[in-house]
Nucleic acid binder design. Sequence first.
DNA 1: CGCGAGATTGACTCGGGTCAATAGTAGTGG
DNA 2: CCACTACTATTGACCCGAGTCAATCTCGCG
Lengths: 294, 294
Amino acid sequence: MTSTHMTETKPELNHSSLHALAADTGWQRQGKLWSDLKELCDLLRVQVVTSVSDEEFLFQHVQFKTGQRIHTIGQAFDTLYIVHSGFLKTVLIDEFGNEQVLSFPMKGDLFGVDGIHTRRYASEAVALSNCDLILLPFKKFTALGRTHVELEHAMYSVMSRELVREQAMVSMLGALSAEARVARFLVSLSERFADMGYSSKLFNLRMTRHEIGSYLGLTLETVSRTLSAFNEIGLITVDQRSIGIRDIEALRTLRRLPPSSSRSKQAGKKLREAAAVQAASRESKTEFDQVVAI
Amino acid sequence: MTSTHMTETKPELNHSSLHALAADTGWQRQGKLWSDLKELCDLLRVQVVTSVSDEEFLFQHVQFKTGQRIHTIGQAFDTLYIVHSGFLKTVLIDEFGNEQVLSFPMKGDLFGVDGIHTRRYASEAVALSNCDLILLPFKKFTALGRTHVELEHAMYSVMSRELVREQAMVSMLGALSAEARVARFLVSLSERFADMGYSSKLFNLRMTRHEIGSYLGLTLETVSRTLSAFNEIGLITVDQRSIGIRDIEALRTLRRLPPSSSRSKQAGKKLREAAAVQAASRESKTEFDQVVAI
DNA sequence: CGCGAGATTGACTCGGGTCAATAGTAGTGG
DNA sequence: CCACTACTATTGACCCGAGTCAATCTCGCG
């Protein structure tokens, strides 16, 4: 249970075991303990007209180790979480025990929102690395929102942003080819790393091929194969979890081969080949001079 | 522009033409004109501890005709919409003009939420039938939320619900086969019609095969074929836009043939066949004694 | 009555899922 | 320290579900 890699034996949604686990964590108080409103809003990338930095309103941090569950499906909801550092995944578990990865929250991301409506979390959140999370008791937060108008708006804003993200996800799953999905996934990861201050060109994946596949609606084999293909074409460099981005533009513009409901009949295959050629022509111009993330 | 079927010629995101159109509508004032808070919450299926029915806070209705656009992508956001009656679709338009249907709002649904974050609508909403919508000016609404706590919570709740819905969508697109998607689509439609007071057994689709396909991440041919297959198996009755549900349980439990990241290796094909058999055995027990919707 | 949009069907193709074998990696324990 | 074990990743062979292309049919409307 305390090993650093994910070996926890899927506890069958056992709530008591979860709580035991949380208790086990013991609200350790190393590292940063509290955050104020401003820090919180900065993290959420929400522009707040710097309200008086109320020192009275502080939010506690909690640490989770790799593999630990932050919350499970069905567990009573009462707090939202903001990632201060670390990487997680949120998953849905369908009626037959199959996991479906919904998101990979990282620094600045909010999660737990799906619990508001039914007052129970609709998904499960698991730490993919050691994490430092900010607790955001929902009651306390809404109460605050009433006195700090801009905070309330921030909340709406973040939820709206999350909704737009999901829409983009739906759109991607509905319309893009496997290659395009993987390409975009890499691009978005790269961008996230960039604005977290890490290298956007060389980084380590925090999740398995299986998790990536689940997130993208593909099998792990397809993910692996696609990464290998990108590698051969020269778009990226792959070695296990380590990814080097060699041609982000090619990845970004890599469109769907004639996928789903396409009406504008532009031979998609040609686009792919074009992208490949385009990539090959740039192959030698990028270099790897940046620091590896983490 | 005022014809009752959808012939509007994709106006290339021309905002001025949109506004002209809205002006054209002329905020017609037939039918119900205003709704109070309680009515609004009832519609949203949010339990509100019946706040004093403030007659001062009323929300205006607007009518749209089939094919009219309620808002377009990029248009400045300032109001949310609640469907009082009628059917719509919301679509995303990707970088090459392809539509992707995101939802089919109907009675009691809220839309426009995706505009909160960037202050511009991220999607486009189009009426699939004549519609009666309730306008919900966002500013006014949040202001109200500050004095009526339960209203604020209702807003969070509805947004959270919407998020969960999107998650379910992602999950479906990522994990289910074409047949399962169509089956679930029919089930959810049936349920929606049921709690709108229409028949859950016999109803008319308000959207084309193409739109259904776009929504489900399939081609219109696959949708058509799948409906035909369900028809032959005896799960449903199809005639153009008219759908008769004959075995909702079979549709509900129709699982994915071995789709994506399946680890529990249960021969999916057998499940399908089982469902078919199951369906056949029930074939004669359902009857069509209910009133057709609309 | 003819036109155009939508729906249905068939034939063909191929992207990506399935199954399976192999290899690289890391944590565990003797 | 090294073998043992459990994941994780990579690759290949095979095949089927669903996309593509295209012909035909229906229906509502001008």
